[in-house]
Write a protein that binds this DNA or RNA. Structure first.
Lengths: 147, 147
DNA sequence: TTAAAACAGGACTTTTTTATCCGAAATTAC
DNA sequence: GTAATTTCGGATAAAAAAGTCCTGTTTTAA
């Protein structure tokens, strides 16, 4: 088992973090990203294709092609990525898989888990790729609080 | 994907919660537990076998046989169960699967995730099956704080 | 115009997880 | 003692996740 996200999602986050850092070098090829992450090129290709369809990255075919972020790194939250790859189950489902667990009829663990889950959700929502670009950690968008 | 634990582990927790509540009825058969949880008997059997080997439950063969907790519900923490079924990876591994992530050379998310992970770990450590037995929520062991 | 580079997408394979089956051994009620 | 019940444990099957392969299309540099 992974910690919280599927391997696809972990790789997606790793790739996007890399792409944010090197976004000025033009499109990055799947090959280059795969080499950097030390994972199979074919696998990250598929993941990047999926991120392309959901408008998180933009792909460009042809000789100097590759992938680049579809918008500013400050505008792509970790939640955007997780939602696209794994969906929102992590933030909604019962911790012990109890079929009918909800705030009204909670499982025994529900009330302990809920606040942690909320913190986790907020962390993913408020954190953007832009928060991790070296030399730019305090770089906020005008009028916004990024962390 | 499940939230945080494997399905095996989710079922183990559900089963043990049930066993804690009905511990006065003598050994509960895998059949009965499976029916109550609405999952396959064969699957929960395997899980209970595993919990038997790690001394979380005790099994008894034969006509009136079944499974019962190996010690007081107040003495079985959720961490005991998770550790036995899934291991401690959830509480140690990098959130985005970065191979060399550690406090010294952390991945970008490390410092955000670490405190949440610690909270999660403490929750699992301090929470015991005994905390969930109906009509007994304030029932602490003498001299101990269960929650 | 052409060849090389790169993504697109479908099919396929492997691995892991989840689930099932079955015969053997143990226990107990009678 | 015997039959019924139940766990034990190995083998197997099914489903999901992870990873690979191949062919086609697009783009551009030369």
């Amino acid at each position: 088992m992974t910690v919280l996200f599927s391997k696809k999602c972990e790789y997606a986050l790793q790739a996007l973090l890399f792409m944010a850092e090197y976004r000025h070098e033009g499109p990055l090829s799947a090959e280059r990203i795969a080499t950097h992450l030390d994972i199979p090129k074919e696998f990250i290709s598929k993941i990047l294709q999926s991120l392309t369809k959901s408008n998180i990255v933009i792909s460009q075919r042809g000789k100097a092609g590759g992938f680049r972020l579809a918008r500013l790194p400050e505008k792509i939250s970790l939640m955007d990525v997780v939602e696209n790859i794994d969906g929102l189950g992590v933030f909604n489902d019962c911790l012990i898989g109890h079929p009918s667990c909800n705030p009204q009829v909670p499982c025994p663990l529900h009330h302990s888990w809920a606040p942690l889950r909320t913190q986790l959700k907020h962390l993913m929502e408020k954190t953007h790729l832009g928060n991790f670009i070296p030399g730019q950690t305090l770089n906020e968008l005008p009028g916004e609080t990024t962390l």
